[in-house]
Each structure stands twice: as structure tokens, then as C-alpha cells.
Amino acid sequence: MHYAKKVLIITFLLCITIFIISPFLMIIVTSFARGWFGTQWMPQEWTFDWYQWAFQVANIGAILKNSIIIAVLAIAMSLFIGMATAWAIARRPVPGKEILFSIILLPRMIPPITYALGISNIFYKLNLIDTYLGVSLAHVTLCLPFGILILSSTFEGLDQRIIEAAQVCGASRWRTFFHVILPLVMPGILAAIIFTFTTSYNEFTLTIMTYGPHTVTLPVKTYLAIGDGYWEVASAISTILLIPSLIVLIIIQRLLKPEKIVGGFKGV
């Protein structure tokens, strides 16, 4: 009885594992497949052509560059803007803190497509469409609330007594900041960087309303490849894109609490 139950549980977990992993395996197999017709488990022929295509024709290199530049800009802006606000929320008396917080989190609660229309409208007038600045600014809308959320919880955890102790010991303001506060909040900032990076790297809705030929990011390229290219090539592109995502996944697993990421839903 006990043994049967164990087998049952393991089978169930195995099924769920297959359920989650197989789509990715299927992408990887498709990216190497040629002439995979009808109903067969594996393709007739294996090929690297689609990867060659992804680099030569689809210009994956340039697009990866775009994505990273936009993500770095978005992270920098979000943290720069968010730092001060998070500090004030965490460590200063602010009237109506809860309401303020829900206002800041509102962009994450309302479907992005609703205000993406407005953003693209404004950006057209300001000539921000198809610029790195424009696309990353659009990403800030989603990254900032998330950054503030993580940073303020980090700052809240900061013990006032340690700071005071440092000052009592005669440390200057700068010294206190660099040698006491910064090491304490660094893990929080790192978490904020990683989560805002995931947000920006995966963001699709706001990007498709503000992108142009010079600012095609990876998700947009995947969409275009699925929409008017070949699925074999789209799979090759996707396989290449999986690598940074897996790195982020490992980082989150190793360094941070996975539960935290739930605030940082990806670009839906």
C-alpha cells in the first residue's frame, strides 16, 4: 500500500515535469529538424541551417545587443528614480502610506495593453518611438513599481541602531554610507536588478507599441519570426534566447527567494 502510493506520487511528479519541460525540448528539437512531416516522433534529418539563418538573416546578434542596452537603461532609470522614493516610503513618516503604495503598484495591476495605447500615442508626438530611450522609458513603467517594492522592503529591514552605532564610533556620513549601509542593502539592490532585468527582457506588450526597426528586442523578434517567418527558424531563435533566461533562473534559485519573483510578473 505504502509502496504503491510512493510510485503513484513519483509518477504524478514525473508527469508534471514532462508537462513543464517538453515544450522547451520540442522547441530545441524543432530548431535542428528538417523535413519533420506527418506524425513522427523525431525528424528525418538534422541540420544547423536554422541557426545559421538566425545569425545571418534574422540578425540575432544585433537584436541581443538592443535587448541588453534597453534592459540596462531601464534598470538604471528605475533604480535611480526608485531609490529615493523607496527610501522615503521605508524610512520616513509618509501619510497614507498604503494608498501611496497601491498607487505606485497600479501599473502592475492593470493590464499593460490598456495604457500601452496611451504611451505609444504620447511617444509618437515626442518622437520617442524607435529609440532606445523611448522603449526603455516604456519599460520603466513596469520596472519602477517593482524596483520600489523590493528596495523599500530592503530599506525597511535596515536596522537604525547599526547606522547610529557607526556614527557614534566616529564614521563620517560618507563612510557610514559606503561601509555600513551599502553592504547591507546590496543584496536587495541586486535582487531589484535581477527582477527588473527579467521584466524588461521579457516585456512584450509595451515594446510592440513603441518599437521600430532599430529597436527590435528579443521577444518582438520571436513574435515576428512566429508570425511571418518559419517556425523552424523561430525555434532556433528561441533556443538561443533560452540561455539568458536559464541563467536568470539559476541566479534566482541560488541567491533569492523564488516567492519574491511573483511580484515581478513578466510582460504578459
Partner: peptide, 13 residues
């Protein structure tokens, strides 16, 4: 919904 899907339908017969 787009050409690749038509192609896919051709592939699956």
C-alpha cells in the same frame, strides 16, 4: 492566423 500556421497545416496534411 499567419502564413507559418498555414504552412504548418500543410506539414500536418
Amino acid at each position: 492566423s499567419e502564413p507559418p500556421i498555414l504552412f504548418n497545416q500543410f506539414k500536418k496534411e
